[in-house]
Each structure stands twice: as structure tokens, then as C-alpha cells.
């Protein structure tokens, strides 16, 4: 085959193919856990060594705490979290049936706080909100991430994918260029992961703290010298929904440890 014919064939296949050429096949998907070193893996596996477990413990306390006289605790509505919250975090972000709003897990907790408990919602990235997120995520440990498309979030998946493929910032890079097209390679000595959000909220050694998926998004945006979206922005939630569609079926390992 001549070089020209080979190129034409390759480009023809590209035009006909329904999936983006950089889509990671299900059998090739690796979580951040799979791609990190044995030491960090051991730290995550041991609940007594995993620093994120402190947040889970704190979150359990907040779940049971009565926020004020006459105001319900989480527990008084939802009961025993081990039963009622099992697998719930794996299905967020989700559309709220009554309003049609799409909420991520922290947004749902904030909504419960303001609308059910009648208290000021905890701020994103605050210790209290991260603790409740970690406690809820813990109840989904091992659960497969549910497909957002299967719950009718197709539009958000599409918007999220567009963001994933959009170049941003002074360095003019998209998420896909690193995390779909160059995963596994060394970026200044750091192995690029596939960006599957299985473990959030998680303890990142670089942060020396537990943090949310949106904090991770902000880090990437700042790294490419782009202006991050504000905390809780619809764009972040769309991006999370796309990533969860891409990772659907992978087991949650929250609260995780990452380098």
C-alpha cells in the first residue's frame, strides 16, 4: 500500500468511527490507585494509616449531630447510613426529582442543610463538608460508579465532554490531551493518570490534606495557567458527570489516598 493510500485509509476510519480515537477501552482503564506506588496503595488499604479516615470519623459525628433545637440531624431523616446511604455516592451527581436541578454530592449535602435542617450550608472545601462527603463516600466503597447517561444526564455528559476536549489557559491544553492521549507517560517525573474520579474526596500527599474533585480540577486549570471556574460552578459538575460516564462501572475506592 502506498503511503498516501495508508493515510487515506487511516483518516477514513477516523471519519467513520463513532467513538473518539482516544477513548480508553474498558479493559485498559486504570484508577489512580492502580497507577500509584505500592507505598501509597498500602497507606490507602490500611484504614488506620489512611489520613482520609479521620474525615470519615468526623463526618460520622456530623451525621448524627443535632444542628440545633428542633432541627433534625441527618440520621433522624435518613436513619442508619450504612444501610440508607449504601451506594448513594456512586450515583452522584444526580438530578433532583422535585426541582430538576443537577446536584453533585457536596451540593446535595448543602441543599439538605439549608432546606431540611434549616442551617447555613457548609462551604465547599470546608472541613465539615469534606467530612460529610467522606463519610457518605465511605458507604459506597467498592460500589461501581453508576452511568450518568443511564439516569438521563446525556446533555450534561455532552457538555462535560466538550469541556474535557477544550483547550484552556496560556499553555493551551485540554484535559484529553494529557489524560486520554498521554496517560501513563511521565510529566516531569509524575505519571499522568487516566482521570477516573473513583476516590473523592481523597487525601492527596501533595496537599497534605483531604480535598474534593473540584479542588483537583482547580489544580489542573491553574497548572495550565487558566482561570478556574468558581467553586460549585455548573461547568465543574458537567465535567464530573462526563468523567463518571467515562469511568462508569469502575469500583469506588473513596476515601482514597493519592500522591
Amino acid at each position: 500500500m502506498t503511503r498516501r493510500a495508508a493515510l487515506a485509509l487511516a483518516l477514513g476510519c477516523l471519519l467513520l468511527g463513532p467513538a473518539p480515537a482516544d477513548e480508553i477501552h474498558a479493559s485498559q482503564r486504570l484508577s489512580g490507585y492502580d497507577m500509584m506506588g505500592a507505598e501509597a496503595q498500602a497507606m490507602q488499604r490500611d484504614d488506620f494509616a489512611n489520613p482520609a479516615m479521620l474525615a470519615v470519623k468526623e463526618g460520622e459525628g456530623l451525621w448524627n449531630a443535632v444542628p440545633g433545637q428542633g432541627r433534625p440531624s441527618c440520621q433522624s431523616c435518613h436513619g442508619n447510613a450504612a444501610a440508607s446511604m449504601k451506594g448513594v455516592a456512586a450515583r452522584y451527581p444526580a438530578r433532583e426529582a422535585s426541582t430538576g436541578r443537577v446536584l453533585d454530592l457536596p451540593g446535595q449535602i448543602q441543599t439538605c442543610q439549608s432546606e431540611r435542617q434549616g442551617i447555613a450550608p457548609a462551604a465547599r472545601e470546608s472541613a465539615a463538608l469534606l467530612a460529610l462527603e467522606a463519610f457518605l463516600a465511605m458507604q459506597s466503597r467498592g460500589a461501581p460508579l453508576a452511568s450518568p447517561r443511564a439516569r438521563g444526564l446525556d446533555d450534561a455528559v455532552s457538555r462535560g465532554e466538550a469541556l474535557y476536549r477544550q483547550r484552556f489557559g496560556q499553555l493551551d491544553l485540554s484535559c484529553a490531551q494529557c489524560h486520554s492521549q498521554n496517560w501513563g507517560r511521565s510529566l516531569g517525573g509524575t505519571r499522568i493518570p487516566q482521570a477516573h474520579p473513583t476516590g473523592y474526596p481523597l487525601f492527596r500527599m501533595e496537599w497534605q490534606a483531604i480535598g474534593s474533585l473540584q479542588r483537583r480540577f482547580r489544580n489542573c486549570m491553574t497548572g495550565i495557567r487558566a482561570e478556574p471556574f468558581p467553586p460549585g460552578a455548573a461547568e465543574w459538575i458537567d465535567l464530573e458527570i462526563y468523567l463518571k460516564e467515562r469511568a462508569a462501572g469502575m469500583a469506588m475506592d473513596a476515601p482514597a489516598v493519592r500522591p
Binding site: R167, Q170, L171, Q177, M221, T222, R225, A226, E227
Partner: peptide, 26 residues
Amino acid sequence: GETIMPPYFRAEGQTRMARAFAGRTI
């Protein structure tokens, strides 16, 4: 057109340039 190499002397055309770098080349 698909390169991952940043444009070192282009200050325009990027999306959501961080405020601290707006209008500046790398």
C-alpha cells in the same frame, strides 16, 4: 494542530487565560 506543546509567543486565542497571565506570552 493537535500538538501538546504550548505556544510560547502567542498571547491571544487561548480560552480562560488566568488573570495573572492575561495578554502575556509565556
